[in-house]
């Protein structure tokens, strides 16, 4: 199965969710600054990378985990992928498309803008990390729901 976490820029919330899913981040405590910085693609993609679907890793159940960025067009992105799945006759249970944007807070937005758009990495990244830590348990909860739902065969995930 392929699980795609998507958000605005594919740099923070989706990357964090994918890292939690892959067990790279703890689920019993808040992650440290350095742990977040070490995640591949965390606070790295820039505007020209938007749109790409990137492979992050394979989880313990053999599911491939991907991240994607789609600016503010989550409905367009999801509709397009579901449409392409129909065209290529791919079973719906083979894919889970998860929107992580509802868990993005203003600190992540501000930090992301400062770091990625304005290029001020140092101040932006510290604001983002505060934001990620603020929403961390919500993201962990989302990932756990995704894991339960994909494991139990209930593929229609509506978050």
């Amino acid at each position: 199965m392929k699980i795609i976490y998507h958000c605005y820029g594919g740099a923070h919330s989706s990357v964090t969710a994918a890292a939690v899913h892959l067990g790279w981040l703890p689920t019993d405590r808040l992650p440290e600054k350095e742990e977040l910085k070490q995640i591949p693609y965390f606070d790295r993609p820039v505007a020209k990378d938007h749109g790409h679907i990137r492979f992050m890793g394979r989880d313990e159940f053999g599911n491939d985990i991907y991240i994607a960025s789609r600016r503010n067009e989550s409905r367009v992105f999801e509709n397009m992928l579901r449409g392409l799945m129909e065209i290529y006759r791919l079973p719906e249970q083979e894919f889970a498309i998860i929107d992580v944007m509802p868990y993005v807070n203003w600190k992540m937005v501000l930090g992301g803008f400062t770091s990625r758009r304005m290029g001020l990495t140092w101040p932006g990244r510290s604001i983002i990390i505060k934001g990620v830590r603020y929403s961390y348990w919500q993201i962990v909860s989302l990932v756990q729901r995704v894991k339960v739902m994909t494991a139990s065969g209930n593929r229609r995930i509506k978050m």
Binding site: K2, H50, G51, H52, I53, Y66, A68, S69, R70, R71, E73, V76, F77, M80, L81, G83, L84, M85, I87, Y88, L90
Partner: peptide, 28 residues
């Protein structure tokens, strides 16, 4: 050759990349 159109609002280049990546991801 099957021809389709997709409405992507004002994020055409981004959705083009996403579509390309997704189609190659499914093994085409």
């Amino acid at each position: 050759t099957e021809v389709y159109t997709i409405g992507v609002r004002n994020v055409g280049p981004i959705m083009a990349k996403a579509a390309n990546d997704f189609i190659s991801l499914v093994g085409t």
